[in-house]
Amino acid sequence: MAERIVLAGGGSAGHVNPMLATAAELRRRRPDTELVLLGTADGLEAELVPAAGFELTVIEKVPLPRRPSADVLRFPRRWRAATATARKVVAGAAAVVGFGGYVATPAYLAGRALGVPIVVHEQNARPGLANRLGARWAAAVGITFEGTPLPKARLVGLPLRPAIAQLVRDRAVDPEARARAGAEACGLDPDRTTVLVTGGSLGAARLNATVPRLASALVEAGAQVLHLTGKGKSSAVLDLLEAAQPPVREHYHVREYLTEMEQALACADLVVSRAGAGMVSELAALGVPAVYVPLPVGNGEQRLNARPVVSAGGGLLVADHELTPDWLRAHLLPLVSDADQRAQMGADAARAGITDAAARLTDLVLDVSRSR
């Protein structure tokens, strides 16, 4: 009978992409192992898991009610359904690998109850509730950023999406050719310095309102800008560019999103972005210098995510409220004009980056499963 490993992660791309990268590495090394991917019917995993060639086992999404509502009454039934599904797939497994979020908690509880070894992977520098719980019982804990406060933590990095892992390999062979190909795929001039601005799929209001105000200065300094505004948020940026001269508008490219993000990263000489774990990890692995503008809400994990690469010299960190046209003029424009400084920052970023995180995490999983 084939060994079975359960991977649980869902909701956000930050949970799903590392799960898929790890599943792919497990399948490559152990093709006879049965892999069960646990997720919800309405999260990103419902689309991404089948697209990656895996079957999704659906589990009830059961967020803990935070205020009196009808969800309080529905919670016990939904929780029982979720835990029953988790126990069914975890029973007899060689290991449970959790990536955080709603899906991971029932899987961790099932693993603990059934004596199945648990491996936790935490993407952020400040861990979430589910992984703090799972780490209490885990046989192994992999973290993305040094200093993440979990027991038994071992630095493994963030397993990279296949397209980014391939880009890392391509850049190692011929970075100039790959950059030109990326620029052409994005409709950009391969001979101009490329500044990529992105706030993620939801966009970032501060980036959208601030960076276009320097459009003329950036273009005059020899740059072109690819600004990804987030879905439904391009009009505010286009309004700011309306008064710009035609040569400026020609080199300031506005899109709401880009499906093949790896093409933009292939040709980016400098990035201005939020500091989500995925973006920080991918830019560091690729050796791309960046200006990180952490999300100003939440528990402050984005600032902590960026801290290692910034401390290594691979990027700049600026608070959301401090990102002004004057700040960009003083800090971003000099980088656009100084290829040597960008190259040094890129090298420093690469030294802080981890390109083999999927292999490292898979090592933990297989070590745990062999110890049974």
Rank of each mutant, 00 (worst) to 15 (best):
K152Y: 02
V297N: 08
S371R: 15
A223L: 07
P65N: 07
E45D: 13
L361M: 01
T57L: 09
P18D: 07
L258V: 13
G200N: 04
Y257D: 09
V72E: 01
A24I: 12
Y102S: 01
R169N: 13
G232T: 14
L37S: 11
A290V: 06
G14V: 15
L366Q: 01
V195T: 04
G203M: 10
K61W: 02
A140S: 07
E25G: 13
N17K: 11
G298Y: 03
D269A: 15
A204L: 08
A163K: 14
S281N: 03
I354K: 07
P162W: 00
V103R: 01
P212F: 13
P18S: 07
P63A: 11
G101P: 00
T148P: 10
R329L: 08
E3F: 05
P289K: 00
V248H: 09
D269H: 14
R87N: 10
R178W: 02
L218K: 00
L258Y: 06
D42W: 08
R169D: 15
V16K: 14
V219T: 05
A358P: 04
A319F: 10
L286A: 07
V141R: 02
P162F: 03
V141H: 01
G182P: 10
D320T: 12
D338I: 08
P149C: 00
V16Y: 05
W327F: 05
R169K: 15
A163C: 12
F54C: 11
Y292T: 13
A183Q: 09
S234E: 15
D363G: 12
V36Q: 05
P212H: 11
A352H: 05
R171L: 12
G142A: 10
G9K: 07
T198E: 00
L35I: 13
L109D: 08
P247N: 08
G9Y: 05
E220W: 13
E250C: 07
V36N: 05
A319T: 12
T105G: 09
I354T: 02
L316M: 15
M345F: 02
Y257W: 12
T83C: 10
P18N: 10
S235V: 15
T40R: 05
A70M: 12
G11H: 13
S235G: 12
G100F: 04
P106H: 03
Q344Y: 09
E176C: 10
A138N: 09
A46H: 09
A52S: 14
E282D: 09
A125W: 00
A223Y: 03
A125T: 04
G53I: 10
D32S: 14
P190I: 04
R4G: 11
V72R: 03
A13V: 14
G98D: 06
G14E: 07
A110Q: 10
S273P: 04
R303M: 13
L155H: 04
K88P: 02
R28N: 10
A82L: 08
L202Y: 15
G39E: 02
A172I: 02
R28G: 12
R74Y: 07
